[in-house]
Design a protein around this nucleic acid. Structure first.
Lengths: 341, 341
DNA sequence: ATGAAAGCGCTAACAC
DNA sequence: GTGTTAGCGCTTTCAT
């Protein structure tokens, strides 16, 4: 009866060993990378038995024994108010692929701001975590940090108290470049607008202005409330104070798109009457009319760098904190041109 | 020396039991839901010890012992050609939340079409899987199906050989409704256009036309290649054959947006000269000018239904296949109106 | 080169 | 009620 192999039940390593007439350790050695030590005949015996039984290793058991999970937590803030969703999905995809390439699984979680805990940041489920920063001081992801849990942030570099490990992109220089592009086109009255206060981007804008001996306008913030209405309101304010404004730097693409809409409603043509630049290069930006001049984020590099560093941290290959700021890229499209005058 | 609690090393259940002077099983019973059976004094003893040691249960060990993973795989096709990314991200978020609500983790993976296997569909890592269908006959997700792995598809209902368990939304009726809306507005020459052949949506369109005693045009497919060029080309074809076309039903929002752009370039005004309806209600659709009349997918219901059914499957609460088709909702916005004359 | 045996941290049957 | 014990499936000393 021992020769009858039960096809239904999932075979364990022990079953393979028994079938091959060897010990469990031998089977383990062979089925893993531990090639050496076992004679070729036994090895073949084991391989054959494994194949015949349809043996598949039990990842959970292996992990318990090895005291590691081979999985990385990915924590995305639930409150995406300022983060473009598309940006996040792209990022998610790249992170997942980067992790997979290194043989790590991804445990995904969306962080509810109210209760700052996450399975994706539980040291018994993951070896480490990637935390997407909200870029705000009260970033709930900070509460997930704990001893025993290596983690690296994406974003957060420009906070007053930045996280220990982060990868970010250079929002300041990016905004400066966008502004300089406008200045190069001949614009002199350039406004800056953001969904919520964005001091770093604003300083990028302001620096570029000063550098060209132009006076920066004060930052406009649309704030909460109905986005379209808020955008119109902010726009009103801009033109009240600076009637000759011929270009606007928006802190993100969604806002830029709303601006285009609001300006058009006011009877202004883009880019003929007003130029607009965005930030993020979300998919929509190339789709709309006019297509949007904007600043592209190096998404894939961001992801790869983050994952690789996290794994180094996990494996204790390095311990120095990671402070990486990647350059952005200005994408020229149809929403900007020289001013009329 | 036994009174010195090593603060550094992570305490296990055994440590707690020892510290409390009880057996491991007692500790286990108390720390889980198994409330009964243990006297209040012992219970308190154990709780105190656990708290003091900072005991956190080891999820992996628990899972091995219980022979389950409490995690659900989420497999997203890498080839997103026809699936809106935003749609997918929304879906991902809702699925993750639904799973979390039921105390399941999400193991995320993007499926490379070339090699049809996925950690998120490995029975030793997940208890079951949610598979996003590409809605094509060669859907690589089908290769992930295996005994021992409960899984439910999202989409795929309208394939010739649909999956055993699926939740989908009614693309046919949705398209019909969109078409009827156009007809109700007074349009008689209505075109249908898709990115790749979409027989079901087309039949929804055609049925609505016939029902109103109008003759459906043949379907237009933009196909691969530069999307904007392809869209213009398809549009050319439409107007060549049907010069009086005053409305277009697009199979998805992205295409609809491209249509708006292409039409505008041809000097036509939307919706004055031509009405356009989309499908999906991606975020962009409300953002652009004119905002897009489209068909909304019940994303959250889709996710909740899928996850709940999957869990029922996992727990063997039910075994009958799930064939659920949810209704869509027509969203009226600014890209449609009565024809001119 | 090979196998016996202990152990990863937890749960659950079974005695007491 | 409570504790002992035997696993879950795998890895890994440590003898042989």
């Amino acid at each position: 009866m021992s020769s009858i192999t039960p096809a239904k039940i999932k075979p364990s390593l022990r079953d393979v060993a028994d079938a091959a007439g060897v010990s469990r350790s031998a089977a383990s050695l062979v089925l893993n990378d531990g090639d050496i030590r076992i004679s070729d005949e036994k090895r073949k015996l084991i391989m054959d038995a494994a194949r015949e039984l349809g043996y598949r290793p039990h990842v959970g058991a292996r992990r318990l024994s090895l005291q590691k999970t081979d999985t990385i937590g990915l924590v995305i803030p639930q409150d995406l108010s300022r983060l473009s969703q598309l940006y996040l999905f792209e990022l998610t995809r790249h992170i997942t692929e980067a992790a997979k390439y290194r043989n790590y699984d991804i445990l995904l979680d969306f962080l509810h701001p109210a209760k700052p805990e996450s399975p994706a940041a539980d040291p018994t489920r993951v070896d480490g975590a990637v935390l997407i920063s909200t870029r705000t001081a009260e970033d709930p992801s900070f509460n997930l940090i704990q001893e025993n849990l290596p983690c690296v942030f994406i974003g957060g570099a420009f906070l007053d108290r930045p996280p220990e490990n982060y990868v970010d992109f250079d929002i300041k220089t990016g905004t400066s470049e966008a502004t300089r592009h406008l200045i190069g086109l001949g614009h002199t009255d350039i406004a800056f607008m953001a969904g919520i206060a964005s001091p770093v981007k604003y300083s990028g804008y302001a620096d570029a202005m000063k550098e060209a001996h132009l006076t920066p306008q004060k930052p406009r913030v649309t704030g909460p409330g109905d986005p379209d209405k808020e955008t119109s309101r902010a726009l009103e304010a801009v033109f009240n104070e600076h009637p000759n404004t011929s270009a606007i730097v928006a802190a993100n693409d969604t806002l830029a798109i709303r601006l285009v809409k609001a300006l058009t409603k006011k009877g202004m043509l883009i880019p003929n009457d007003v130029s607009v630049v965005g930030f993020d290069d979300i998919e929509t930006s190339s789709l709309i009319m006019p297509s949007l001049t904007t600043v592209r984020i190096p998404m894939k590099e961001l992801a790869v760098l983050t994952v690789n560093h996290l794994i180094d941290l996990i494996r204790e290959k390095r311990t120095e904190p990671l402070h990486e700021i990647l350059p952005t890229e200005l994408i020229l499209r149809d929403s900007t041109r020289s001013p009329r005058n």
